[in-house]
Design a protein around this nucleic acid. Structure first.
Lengths: 146, 146
DNA sequence: TTTGATTAGTTGCTTAAACAACTATATGTC
DNA sequence: GACATATAGTTGTTTAAGCAACTAATCAAA
């Protein structure tokens, strides 16, 4: 049996996620300073639509690791902001396909630049090798609990 | 100039914090299965009081990386659950000192056991060395943005 | 082809986060 | 001592998460 079965000391920060909270806050602040009036959560939905426009709400649930009510309401708010549109699927009338508006497409460049800038601020002094290991660990944790 | 100034690829998971969200959800689920009716956020406040009982709300803000209104309301809810008590400081009448009740003291052992168990589930297959590096990276990120 | 189960999405409710605006107390300076 | 400033905590508002309960559409099996 591996050592990992036993107590590993001060792992509390894994649970509270102070670091990712801090990054999210900083990114939100950077959005605000650039007069971008979207939340990080809204941005995270747009992020997946920029990668692939036209996804069902269920696909967005899976992509963003959120439950259905959360996506319903995020899409509600994004629709109010005229950043996405719900388009009922013709094949399957249960499904809403979510599409970006022109406005949302225009947000991509600026916000991704701010996101990269924020990550660089956050990762000052961390080597690429260390970042890779951290990413791997977080991925394994996610997969273990999924 | 270091490489870290440049784009580092798929770092999105750092921002959304999927892994820490997953751990928090799993711990919440494990609490529920053991009929422990507290939230992870409430537990995180208790955690710091178990380390040192009798802290001001401001100290709890610093310890838990939350703002003052958040702590006000968490303490409100913990008081409703009869897990903590606000005691006005005699030296400084602005300050509330927060103390654990007997009930809360009794929660420590069981919940910490569940927390360790949850971390072990999460970290299956991750070596201690990797965990150490991940912790260091998260700490640097936190310090960079603090 | 009808019945039962599954899938997609919505609504209601409680808890919490973030921010601004506020009250009350304490401190420091002239 | 009086006034400005800082500190501790509260309240109001918006956004979001998580869970349960719900509707509507689809699928599958007899």
């Amino acid at each position: 049996m591996s050592n990992n079965q036993f107590k590993r000391g001060e792992l509390y920060s894994f649970i509270t996620g102070k670091a990712s909270t801090a990054i999210a806050r900083r990114l939100q602040k950077n959005f605000k300073q650039s007069s971008l009036d979207i939340t990080i959560e809204q941005w995270s939905v747009l992020y997946h639509l920029w990668k692939k426009d036209g996804q069902s709400q269920q696909q967005l649930c899976d992509a963003t690791f959120r439950d259905k009510p959360s996506i319903t309401r995020l899409v509600d708010n994004l629709e109010k902001l005229k950043l996405v549109k719900r388009v009922p699927s013709k094949n399957d009338r249960r499904i809403n396909m979510i599409y970006l508006t022109k406005e949302a497409v225009n947000l991509q460049e600026k916000t991704m630049e701010l996101a990269n800038q924020t990550l660089n601020e956050a990762l000052q002094g961390v080597s690429n090798g260390q970042v890779e290991i951290a990413k791997e660990v977080l991925q394994v944790v996610y997969d273990n609990l999924k």
